[in-house]
Protein backbone atom coordinates (compact mmCIF):
# COMPACT_ATOMS: atom_id res chain seq x y z
CA UNK A 1 0.00 0.00 0.00
CA UNK A 2 1.43 3.39 -0.94
CA UNK A 3 0.95 6.54 1.00
CA UNK A 4 -0.76 9.14 -1.06
CA UNK A 5 0.32 11.78 1.44
CA UNK A 6 3.65 11.07 2.99
CA UNK A 7 4.24 13.42 5.92
CA UNK A 8 6.58 16.21 4.84
CA UNK A 9 10.26 16.30 5.69
CA UNK A 10 11.65 18.73 8.27
CA UNK A 11 15.27 19.67 8.86
CA UNK A 12 16.38 19.58 12.47
CA UNK A 13 18.81 22.04 14.05
CA UNK A 14 19.97 21.60 17.62
CA UNK A 15 21.73 23.87 20.08
CA UNK A 16 23.82 21.49 22.12
CA UNK A 17 24.40 23.91 24.98
CA UNK A 18 23.79 27.52 25.89
CA UNK A 19 26.15 29.81 24.00
CA UNK A 20 26.49 27.66 20.89
CA UNK A 21 24.79 27.99 17.50
CA UNK A 22 22.03 25.67 16.39
CA UNK A 23 23.60 23.05 14.17
CA UNK A 24 21.98 20.89 11.53
CA UNK A 25 21.81 17.30 12.69
CA UNK A 26 19.30 15.44 10.51
CA UNK A 27 15.67 15.33 9.52
CA UNK A 28 12.31 13.82 10.44
CA UNK A 29 8.97 13.26 8.78
CA UNK A 30 6.02 14.89 10.53
CA UNK A 31 2.59 16.15 9.57
CA UNK A 32 2.87 19.49 11.41
CA UNK A 33 5.46 21.65 13.11
CA UNK A 34 4.63 20.53 16.66
CA UNK A 35 4.96 16.90 15.70
CA UNK A 36 8.23 17.69 13.94
CA UNK A 37 9.58 19.39 17.04
CA UNK A 38 8.63 16.51 19.28
CA UNK A 39 9.93 13.92 16.82
CA UNK A 40 13.21 15.82 16.69
CA UNK A 41 13.30 15.72 20.47
CA UNK A 42 12.51 12.01 20.59
CA UNK A 43 14.98 11.13 17.84
CA UNK A 44 17.92 13.51 18.18
CA UNK A 45 18.19 14.36 21.88
CA UNK A 46 18.01 10.91 23.48
CA UNK A 47 21.45 11.34 24.98
CA UNK A 48 21.06 14.89 26.25
CA UNK A 49 22.43 16.35 23.02
CA UNK A 50 20.33 19.49 23.09
CA UNK A 51 18.90 22.43 24.98
CA UNK A 52 17.00 23.98 22.08
CA UNK A 53 15.58 22.71 18.79
CA UNK A 54 14.59 24.34 15.51
CA UNK A 55 12.64 22.49 12.87
CA UNK A 56 12.27 23.92 9.38
CA UNK A 57 10.25 22.47 6.50
CA UNK A 58 12.89 21.08 4.14
CA UNK A 59 11.20 22.68 1.17
CA UNK A 60 11.49 26.11 2.81
CA UNK A 61 15.26 26.03 2.53
CA UNK A 62 16.86 27.82 -0.40
CA UNK A 63 20.28 26.41 -1.08
CA UNK A 64 23.12 27.59 -3.28
CA UNK A 65 23.81 25.35 -6.26
CA UNK A 66 26.99 23.34 -6.36
CA UNK A 67 27.64 24.50 -9.93
CA UNK A 68 27.64 28.11 -8.72
CA UNK A 69 30.44 27.37 -6.32
CA UNK A 70 33.13 29.03 -8.42
CA UNK A 71 31.27 32.27 -8.97
CA UNK A 72 29.89 32.49 -5.45
CA UNK A 73 32.85 31.55 -3.32
CA UNK A 74 36.09 31.74 -5.23
CA UNK A 75 36.07 35.53 -5.70
CA UNK A 76 36.72 35.83 -1.96
CA UNK A 77 39.86 33.75 -2.14
CA UNK A 78 42.21 36.51 -3.33
CA UNK A 79 40.96 39.19 -0.94
CA UNK A 80 43.61 38.27 1.52
CA UNK A 81 43.76 41.82 2.89
CA UNK A 82 40.63 40.92 4.87
CA UNK A 83 42.69 38.72 7.15
CA UNK A 84 44.77 40.10 10.02
CA UNK A 85 47.79 38.03 9.01
CA UNK A 86 48.07 40.14 5.82
CA UNK A 87 49.58 42.99 7.80
CA UNK A 88 53.11 43.22 9.19
CA UNK A 89 53.17 44.97 12.52
CA UNK A 90 56.54 45.15 14.33
CA UNK A 91 56.67 43.38 17.65
CA UNK A 92 57.55 46.65 19.35
CA UNK A 93 54.08 47.99 18.64
CA UNK A 94 52.64 45.69 21.25
CA UNK A 95 49.66 43.33 21.13
CA UNK A 96 47.21 44.21 18.39
Amino acid sequence: MTDTKEWPLWEVFIRSKAGLDHKHCGSVHASDSEMALEAARDVYTRRSEGVSIWVVPSNAITASKPEDKESLFEPADDKIYRHPTFYDIPKGAGKM
Partner: peptide, 8 residues
Protein backbone atom coordinates in the same frame (compact mmCIF):
# COMPACT_ATOMS: atom_id res chain seq x y z
CA UNK B 1 2.43 4.16 12.33
CA UNK B 2 5.89 5.64 11.63
CA UNK B 3 9.43 5.30 12.93
CA UNK B 4 9.18 8.71 14.56
CA UNK B 5 6.13 7.54 16.53
CA UNK B 6 7.94 4.33 17.42
CA UNK B 7 10.70 6.42 18.95
CA UNK B 8 8.19 8.54 20.84
Amino acid sequence: PSIEMEMA
